[in-house]
């Protein structure tokens, strides 16, 4: 049994079922990602877990506490980082952190000490006395994360933590999340960035139309689809005319000629390269480079959910 256990959780908005009897559990100290397109039910799920929304059915158990019945007790041990930077614009960074600490009953000396520590940890000491509205997007995001962990919570809920910020800030935030994991925090994260989920999550659940369609580690998810071996060859000239001959000689292989000077050899079995190279050499074609193409989590997501990667790309651009 994990530190977070969600069983048959559902959420109805009138006739619309946003979350459809989902179940999952999160182990202590792991980063668990909920990956899916917009409208899949990610925010509805997280809102029910943190107490911003009431489930229409099902159970949520967080650190042994029933979150449906006793959410205020749960809120003491969880940290919440929403998808929007919702700190107070008029207050400076230091005061914002101190105010958030006070909501958890921390005394003045304790909250000032913790705020100073976090500003240092997040490289924001230089902007401590600057109003929040004067922060850049990346700085705002970092301070919002700092506000979420000010009371040193056991479990963290992050809703789309790197959406809408620049690449460098996103990289820093991902590093911060991994540092929090090293400190022993359990982290629940929702995202629609496939690479982000792949890079930082220990386990991932794919959610589509309010249903979890697959859960597992990145390796497990990769193994769950029928794997094809792919080798890309860089050549000195086109092999368009040789395609049929190659496929005839290597019956288990498919040749995909993507552009003039390269081709892709696809097979369900491991590909032995030397016979291919010998054949190409006998035809006077030089091979400059041979590279194995591994399937990405994106390929797995597309295969399992049936949702085109381009749809997620559009969302990214939109966000």
């Amino acid at each position: 049994m994990g530190i977070v256990n969600v069983t048959n959780l559902k959420k109805m908005y009138d006739e619309f079922q946003a979350v459809n009897e989902i179940s999952f559990s999160i182990e202590q100290g792991e980063i668990f990602g909920l990956l899916g397109p917009n409208g899949a039910g990610k925010t509805s799920t997280i809102n029910m877990m943190i107490g911003l929304s009431r489930p229409s059915g099902g159970h949520i158990l967080i650190d042994g506490i029933d979150a449906v019945k006793d959410i205020k007790k749960v809120q003491r041990i969880i940290g919440i980082i929403p998808d929007e930077n919702n700190l107070y614009n008029e207050m400076n960074g230091f005061d914002n952190l101190c105010f958030c600490a006070s909501l958890y009953g921390m005394r003045k000396a304790e909250r000032e000490k913790r705020a100073t520590e976090l500003l240092e940890q997040f490289n924001l000491t230089f902007a401590a006395k600057r109003p929040f509205k004067a922060y850049s997007k990346g700085m705002k995001r970092k301070l919002t994360i700092a506000a979420g962990i000010i009371h040193n919570p056991k479990i963290l809920f992050l809703d789309e933590p790197t959406t809408g910020i620049d690449v460098e800030s996103a990289r820093q935030i991902r590093k911060l999340i991994l540092d929090l994991k090293k400190q022993g925090k359990t982290i629940f994260i929702t995202t629609h960035y496939i690479e982000e989920a792949e890079r930082i999550c220990d386990r991932i659940a794919f959610i589509v139309n309010g249903r979890i369609v697959k859960t597992g580690t990145v390796t497990e998810l990769m193994e769950s689809i029928e794997r094809e071996h792919k080798i890309k060859l860089q050549l000195d000239s086109s092999i368009k005319e040789l395609k049929e001959e190659l496929e005839h000689n290597f019956v288990n292989c498919r040749i995909d000629i993507s552009d003039k000077n390269s081709c892709l050899i696809i097979s369900k079995e491991r590909i032995a390269l030397s016979p291919v190279l010998q054949l190409l050499d006998s035809k006077g074609i030089s091979v400059y480079e041979a590279k194995e193409i591994k399937p990405s989590l994106e390929d797995v997501f597309v295969k399992i959910t049936g949702i085109e990667a381009s749809k997620l790309e559009i969302e990214k651009a939109g966000k």
Partner: peptide, 13 residues
């Protein structure tokens, strides 16, 4: 601005 949500998810009644 959703800063009120911060108060709603705080452990106060």
């Amino acid at each position: 601005s959703r800063s009120f949500d911060r108060l709603l998810v705080a452990p106060i009644s």
